[in-house]
Simulated assay, not measured.
Amino acid sequence: MTLSEENYLKTIYHLQAQSSAGVTTNAIAERIETKASSVTDMLKKLADKDLIAYKKYQGVSLTPSGLLSAKMIVRKHRLWEVFLVDKLAFSWDEVHDIAEQLEHIKSEQLINKLDEFLGFPTQDPHGDPIPDASGRINTIEKQLLSELNEGQQGICVGVKDSSSEFLKYLDKNGIALGSSIEVMSRERFDLSLVIKVNGKQLPVSAKIAGNLFVRLA
């Protein structure tokens, strides 16, 4: 596959994970920031390779071979993120763009050696699961911080928004994977929360709470 084809497969994979319905051409165009007509041309190429099932006006879905290919791209991306953070001391807000480049390396042997070298991690620095060499994914029970009630506690296990700006905000406030978070109070007016993290109380907006995944403690 070309680099562009791999990017399309990964995009469809992420969009498909967010919705049980078929992925629309417009959704792909918006995510990749290109014209819908360009998306249509690429979808025809991917369909010819049996990587997607595509019918005009009916949405797109990955075929079994397309799904496995997409998982392998995601696997490479997330393993490289682990390597960059754990071995090269990059911060979690710096690694996405670099991993975007490294994910297109073709060598399966290299990626399997990298996986072994890292100790077969099951999640990346943002808490997202890493597919194994067969495409299997170990999922964990999690929910958004915004869904917790007053008095409930959770352990931060991931982020919904992995943008550099959001991750820098979390760093500034001492919130990281593994942080214990307790909901102290909720404001009915705007659904903002006051949480306790690292022994300190911190007010957070509904937007922030809606982008943090936790596992109930």
Rank of each mutant, 00 (worst) to 15 (best):
M1W: 12
M1C: 03
M1A: 10
T2Y: 10
T2I: 09
N7L: 13
Y8L: 02
Y8W: 01
L9W: 10
K10D: 11
T11F: 09
H14A: 04
Q18T: 07
S19L: 01
S20V: 08
S20M: 01
T24A: 03
A27F: 00
E33W: 03
E33G: 01
K35E: 02
A36N: 08
S38L: 00
V39R: 05
D41L: 12
D41Q: 13
M42H: 12
L43I: 04
A47R: 15
K49I: 02
Y54I: 07
Y54M: 04
Y57A: 04
Y57E: 01
G59K: 13
S61T: 15
P64Y: 09
G66A: 09
G66C: 11
L68R: 09
A70L: 02
A70Q: 06
K71P: 02
K71V: 03
M72Y: 11
I73T: 08
K76N: 13
L79H: 10
E81D: 03
V82D: 07
K87R: 15
F90Q: 02
S91V: 06
D93S: 06
E94I: 03
H96R: 11
D97E: 12
I98M: 07
A99P: 09
L102S: 05
I105W: 04
Q109W: 11
L110N: 10
N112L: 11
N112S: 14
E116I: 12
F120W: 10
P121T: 10
T122F: 01
P125M: 01
H126Y: 06
D128T: 12
G135K: 05
I137G: 02
I137C: 03
N138S: 12
Q143V: 03
L145Y: 06
S146C: 01
S146Q: 07
N149L: 13
E150W: 08
Q152Y: 06
G154R: 08
I155N: 08
I155G: 03
K160H: 04
Y169P: 00
L170P: 02
L177S: 02
S180C: 06
I181G: 06
M184K: 15
M184T: 13
R186K: 15
R186Q: 14
R186F: 08
R188D: 11
F189T: 13
S192V: 11
I195P: 10
Q201K: 15
Q201F: 06
S205C: 09
F213Y: 14
L216N: 10
A217Q: 12
